[in-house]
Simulated assay, not measured.
Amino acid sequence: MITMRTPVLLAAGALLLQVSHACRATEEYSFEATSFSTAAASSGDAEPLRLLKTSDDDSGTWVTEEEKIHEYMLKHVHFMDVTETQELEELGASRHAALAKRQSPYPAPSRQSIANPIIARLVQNNVQSTITGLSNIYNRYYRGSYAATSASYVLNAVRSAASSNPAITVRQFTHSFNQPSVIATIPGTSPRRVIVTAHYDSINSASVTGRAPGADDNASGVASILEALRALAAARYAPGNTLEFHFYGGEEGGLLGARDVFNRYAADNVDVLAVLNQDMTGYSTNNVIAVYTDYVDAGLTTYMRRLVPVYTTLGLVTDRCGYGCSDHAAARAAGYPASYVCADTMSDSSPYIHTANDTPRGSFYAHALQHSRLTVGFLVEGSFW
């Protein structure tokens, strides 16, 4: 999650422009970076620059990777790295206009008889195993020594979760950095897609090369949607609309993975009905589920508020990030209906994120499993839209 526990949110309110081989197919999507403009190349043979934006109105600033780390990431400045996805907002403009004119609300939740038997297949120990397994990697910084290690871990975990249903495909989506995103697809009778997302990279905000177990941020979110995938695969669930599970790299570097993926989807006119992003699903002192209401689609967010009490046993609260604090901002930039669900409010979120102390805690597992329940309910309901 791109969030900092400081007294004042810098650039608050600004929109960030932002292991089994039983699967039938494993393919790799390559990402071709947009050529840098002349402004993006510094004199001589210095490294290429990165284009960062901190608000909707910001025209952007070209910086080196080192400046990005030390002047933005480590100084708790909220930013979006748009270097390779400068056209994303333009690609999403027509969809934004269509969403603004949309009149039909999402239907009332009505598929409990189908979803509940799948929910009964969810196993808390699997959630615990994923959280501890990812946390055991020294760090999952997207440009660090363990980027490829974390990518391999996630790819193998997704393949394993999907392995009981050979209709499910698992593919990597490569980026300009060495931490590809992973996408699992349960094909439906319709090509329209309902998507759940979580990022798997982690960071230590004191030193990007330091220990960063990232148990809550965001091994917990990965565990929540991964267990939902495993249960749906085990049930051989055959949806109407196609269901996708996105595990992004590079979120802490400016929503890099999610922006790459949604830039491709927007350019290819992929029909996405809804996106549910989950970032930090473990730590909740209030034992609630928080639905966030800014930088999201209003209609889908209202629907998520209706869904929480149907498919979970937790209380519902709402909150605002004040900025595009996670990967839902990338989906929204592409013009797709996006929502964001977290384990708690901003003020009551974990004080340990982005530090070496974001380690697994016993209370995480049951709470993250509630998010798995919500994920299954959302996907089953969405498969009928």
Rank of each mutant, 00 (worst) to 15 (best):
I2W: 06
M4Q: 04
P7H: 04
G13N: 11
L17K: 12
V19G: 12
R24T: 14
S30D: 12
T34V: 13
S37G: 14
A40I: 01
A41C: 09
S43V: 12
S43G: 07
G44T: 10
D45Q: 09
P48R: 05
L49C: 02
L49H: 01
L49V: 01
L51A: 02
L52K: 03
K53L: 11
S55Q: 06
G60H: 00
T61V: 13
T61Y: 02
V63F: 07
V63T: 07
T64Y: 00
E65G: 04
E71M: 08
M73W: 07
K75V: 07
F79H: 13
F79C: 05
V82G: 00
T83L: 01
E89Y: 10
E89A: 15
E90I: 11
L91Q: 05
L91C: 03
A93R: 15
S94L: 09
S94Q: 14
A97R: 13
A97Q: 11
A97D: 08
R102D: 02
P105V: 03
Y106A: 10
Y106P: 00
P107A: 09
A108V: 14
P109N: 06
S110I: 03
R111S: 14
Q112I: 06
I114P: 02
A115W: 01
P117M: 08
A120P: 01
R121A: 15
Q124K: 13
N125Y: 03
T130V: 15
G133E: 09
S135V: 00
Y138K: 12
S152I: 04
N156S: 15
V158N: 11
I168E: 09
I168P: 04
F173G: 00
S176Y: 13
N178R: 10
N178Q: 14
Q179E: 15
Q179G: 10
I186K: 05
P187G: 07
G188A: 12
G188H: 12
P191N: 10
V194Q: 07
V194K: 08
H199V: 04
Y200I: 12
S202H: 11
S205I: 12
G210Q: 05
D216E: 14
A219R: 11
E227G: 02
E227V: 07
A228P: 00
A231S: 15
A233I: 10
Y237I: 05
P239L: 12
N241V: 06
L243N: 02
E252D: 13
E252Q: 13
G257Q: 11
V261C: 03
F262K: 03
F262C: 05
A266I: 04
A267C: 03
D271N: 14
D279M: 06
D279S: 08
N286W: 02
N287W: 03
N287K: 13
A290G: 09
A298R: 08
T301S: 12
Y303K: 12
M304Y: 09
P309Q: 07
P309N: 07
T313Q: 14
L314P: 02
D319Y: 00
S326W: 04
S326R: 11
D327C: 10
H328G: 07
A331S: 15
A331V: 06
A338S: 15
V341K: 05
C342N: 10
D344W: 06
S349D: 10
Y352L: 05
N357V: 02
P360M: 06
R361C: 03
Y365P: 00
A366K: 02
L369F: 09
H371I: 07
S372I: 04
S372G: 05
T375D: 06
G377D: 06
L379S: 10
V380P: 01
V380K: 08
S383N: 11
W385N: 05
W385G: 08
W385H: 07
